[in-house]
Structures are given as C-alpha cells and as structure tokens.
Amino acid sequence: MITLKNVRKTYENGADALKGINLEVADGEFIFIVGPSGSGKSTLTKILTGEVCPTDGEVVVNGFDMNRIRRSKLHKLRRTLGIIFQDFRLIENKTVYQNVEFVMRVLGAKPRKIKERVRYVLELVGLDHKMRCMPEELSGGEQQRVAIARALANNPKLIIADEPTGNIDPELSRELMALLVEINKKGTTVLVVTHEEELVNEFTNRVVVINSGRIVRDGTGGYYGNV
C-alpha cells in the first residue's frame, strides 16, 4: 500500500524537510504520524498525495511509483485516496449534501449511485439529519465530519488526514478520531497526522514519531510508547 525507502526531501530554499524516511504501511492499517512542528509531517503526506516530489528515495502509493508518475496521470492516484485537511475546505455556498455529492459528480458517478452513497457516508459520520445545512451553520467538528464523509464518498483505499483535529476542541477531536478508527475497521487504510499527544495516547494503534525529518520511533503504545 505505502512503501517509502530512504526518502529525502530538500525544498528549493534549502530546507531539509525529510532526511531518509523508511516506512511500510500495509493494507487495512491505521497509523498515526506524530512529531513536533516543522518535523516534516506535512511534507510526508504531500509526497504521498503527489503534491510534492521526493528529492531522493523510492515512494510507492497504492501501486503508483511517485518518481515515475507523470503529472497528467496523477489523477489516477488521487482517485484511490481520500484526503482530509486541517481547514476542512468545504465549498461555502453548497449544502452539506451538495459538498459530498460534488466530488462524486466530478468523477462521473451515476445519479442513483450518488444519492445512495451520499446518504450512506453522511449517516456514517452521523450528519444525515443536517444534509440541507450550509457549512457555516455547522460546528467545527461537524464541518470536519462532512469533510470525512466527502473523503469517503468515492470509496478510497487510503485516507490521508493532515491534522484533521487541528481546528476543533479536544472533546470533539476524540469523537472524530474514533470515527476514523471505525472507518478503518470497515477496511480502509487510514493515515492520520497529528501533534496532539493526549489524543494519540487514547488509542492503541501504531504510532510513527518523526523528528527533524527522521523517524525516531515506530510502534504501538501511544506517543512515547509507554502507555
């Protein structure tokens, strides 16, 4: 599913964001990527989504070799991914329903299938009763749940979430994380980036700790491996 071998990333301004990352994520896994600010977490996710090119090393995501893939073929990789951002990125003038429907329409799904699927994913995140609301009428946690529903809409193999709880309060964050774990149990691989120690400690999943562009710990047992 995800294979990283000796991956390095040096930005044009000379910033060494990643200094040799080796990581293997199997199908169906749930993994936290944690680490202090500026350690290279976002850079890592951007390499996985094809937004950023690795400077060196091997990267394979869902069977796509990120060193070889052409820009014109990037959309094929993206169709296998569900991406969730810290700032939700909902379309403000569309309802909750339309926001989810939109991404299915973009990929040309049939109207009947769209109707079914949108209802299903909104139910899954517990927002089917707010389908007709506009994003601004929702709380931060609810907005992020819409974003998760949207990421699920096209039935991705892998969900990549960069600080999905960065803009919501701790109580809701835990619920949201539980939701992602739930989704993972249905078979989707999930990779969550966060720097919230306490949140990570509540789960027993695999944790990869990055510091200054290097993996310093990889295992279970919370942020420090002592939970």
Binding site: T49, H75, L81, R89
Partner: peptide, 16 residues
Amino acid sequence: ATEISIMRMVGATKSF
C-alpha cells in the same frame, strides 16, 4: 479556488 483544489484532490482530470 476551493472548488478547483477539491476537484484536483479527488482526481478530476485537467481537462475536466
């Protein structure tokens, strides 16, 4: 811009 970035993110083709 938001709409376009979402379309990119879910894998819409450039011509689409």
